[in-house]
Design a protein around this nucleic acid. Structure first.
Length: 205
DNA sequence: TAGACGATTGCCT
DNA sequence: GGCAATCGTCTAC
């Protein structure tokens, strides 16, 4: 069993944190069972100087968690039907977080498939931020949860390290602002990482 | 208080 | 590859 990460290890710049989170294992426990996902794709959002970040326009009730201590989970609702999960980085008073985009299901693939029967990748991978949250069973109720607390239902473990040469970086996905900033990190060759889609969604209708 | 829109996904052509 | 679904959050008035 691998070691649970400490708050000190997560209280760093989100860009550096994003790189370090690759290969880490996120575990969610519930009455249904346990699902463990090895993170394969993440994106950094650094508060005040990043126009794509939820914190760019200041502190609001929604982004409150991002302003708090590192190692907590920031979950938000998007597009009227999906949840996305972030891990808060930096220290208190300095907003910033890392969006969890995709991962490989290590434990509980049956439960994962049950939670997301139509998901791409048949339960072995969680490809996409909203797929990742539903596979883990994470929703609004998990907003603000402490990933470094041994008693939490969602916890973060050190997993297996990723060799530097397998880490790739590129522009963030689906954000219209600051598209040129290469703050997306992924593990090269991971089955959980999809093809790149340009940011700046064209509005339908 | 009304209106615009979003860190997405999956169905349909 | 195109685009609809769907609603919480934020901004402007």
């Amino acid at each position: 069993m691998s070691r649970q990460l400490t708050r000190d290890e997560l209280a760093i710049d989100p860009v550096e944190l994003a790189r370090r989170l690759l290969g880490r294992v996120l575990e969610s426990r519930s009455e249904q069972g346990t699902v463990r996902v090895r993170l394969a794709e993440v994106e950094a959002y650094r508060g005040l100087d990043d126009p794509a970040s939820h914190c760019y326009r200041g502190r609001t009730p929604r982004n409150e968690v991002m302003w708090g201590p590192a190692g907590h989970l920031y979950v938000y609702f998007v597009y009227g039907m999906h949840f996305c999960a972030n891990i808060v980085g930096l220290t208190e008073g300095q907003p910033g977080a890392v969006l969890l985009r995709a991962g490989e299901v290590e434990t509980g693939s049956e439960l994962a498939r049950m939670r997301r029967p139509t998901a791409r990748g048949n339960g072995a991978v969680a490809k996409g931020p909203a797929v990742l949250t539903s596979v883990l069973g994470v929703d609004r109720a998990h907003n603000g949860i402490d990933l470094t607390d041994p008693d939490s239902s969602v916890r973060l473990f050190d997993g297996t390290p990723v060799p530097e040469e397998r880490i790739r970086t590129g522009p963030r996905v689906g954000v219209a602002a600051a598209m040129d900033i290469p703050w997306r990190f992924w593990i090269d060759g991971s089955p959980a990482v999809g093809t790149y889609r340009r940011g700046g969604r064209v509005r339908a209708r």
